[in-house]
Measured scan of single mutants.
Amino acid sequence: KLPPGWEKRMFRSNGTVYYFNHITNASQFERPSG
Score class of each variant (00 low, 15 high):
residue 5 G to Y: 05
residue 29 F to W: 11
residue 19 Y to R: 00
residue 8 K to V: 15
residue 20 F to V: 08
residue 9 R to N: 03
residue 25 N to P: 02
residue 26 A to D: 09
residue 27 S to H: 12
residue 7 E to Q: 10
residue 15 G to M: 09
residue 15 G to E: 07
residue 11 F to N: 15
residue 13 S to D: 11
residue 25 N to V: 06
residue 10 M to W: 13
residue 20 F to Q: 02
residue 20 F to A: 04
residue 29 F to N: 05
residue 14 N to A: 11
residue 28 Q to N: 03
residue 22 H to T: 15
residue 11 F to Q: 09
residue 2 L to M: 06
residue 3 P to C: 09
residue 1 K to N: 14
residue 8 K to H: 04
residue 12 R to Y: 12
residue 15 G to V: 00
residue 19 Y to D: 01
residue 34 G to T: 12
residue 22 H to A: 10
residue 6 W to I: 01
residue 4 P to R: 08
residue 17 V to F: 13
residue 33 S to H: 10
residue 14 N to S: 14
residue 33 S to F: 12
residue 17 V to E: 09
residue 9 R to K: 08
residue 4 P to G: 05
residue 11 F to H: 12
residue 27 S to V: 15
residue 19 Y to S: 00
residue 29 F to A: 10
residue 23 I to V: 10
residue 14 N to W: 07
residue 10 M to V: 13
residue 26 A to E: 15
residue 9 R to P: 00
residue 12 R to V: 12
residue 12 R to N: 14
residue 25 N to W: 07
residue 10 M to S: 08
residue 23 I to H: 10
residue 26 A to N: 08
residue 19 Y to V: 00
residue 7 E to S: 10
residue 7 E to G: 09
residue 6 W to H: 02
residue 30 E to R: 05
residue 4 P to T: 07
residue 8 K to I: 14
residue 34 G to H: 12
residue 23 I to Q: 06
residue 31 R to L: 09
residue 8 K to W: 05
residue 9 R to D: 00
residue 29 F to I: 12
residue 18 Y to Q: 03
residue 30 E to T: 10
residue 27 S to M: 15
residue 13 S to R: 10
residue 23 I to W: 06
residue 32 P to D: 01
residue 3 P to G: 04
residue 12 R to L: 14
residue 22 H to R: 14
residue 29 F to E: 05
residue 33 S to M: 13
residue 20 F to I: 06
residue 9 R to I: 05
residue 14 N to E: 08
residue 34 G to N: 12
residue 24 T to Y: 04
residue 28 Q to K: 04
residue 7 E to D: 04
residue 26 A to V: 15
residue 15 G to R: 06
residue 21 N to Y: 06
residue 29 F to V: 08
residue 10 M to K: 08
residue 10 M to G: 04
residue 2 L to C: 10
residue 30 E to W: 08
residue 31 R to T: 07
residue 5 G to P: 08
residue 16 T to L: 14
residue 23 I to Y: 12
residue 26 A to Y: 04
residue 13 S to L: 08
residue 34 G to M: 12
residue 13 S to G: 12
residue 13 S to A: 09
residue 26 A to F: 07
residue 9 R to H: 05
residue 5 G to V: 01
residue 13 S to K: 12
residue 1 K to S: 15
residue 28 Q to V: 04
residue 31 R to E: 09
residue 33 S to I: 11
residue 30 E to A: 05
residue 29 F to H: 07
residue 3 P to M: 02
residue 22 H to G: 07
residue 11 F to Y: 14
residue 24 T to G: 04
residue 3 P to D: 04
residue 17 V to D: 01
residue 33 S to Q: 11
residue 26 A to R: 13
residue 3 P to T: 01
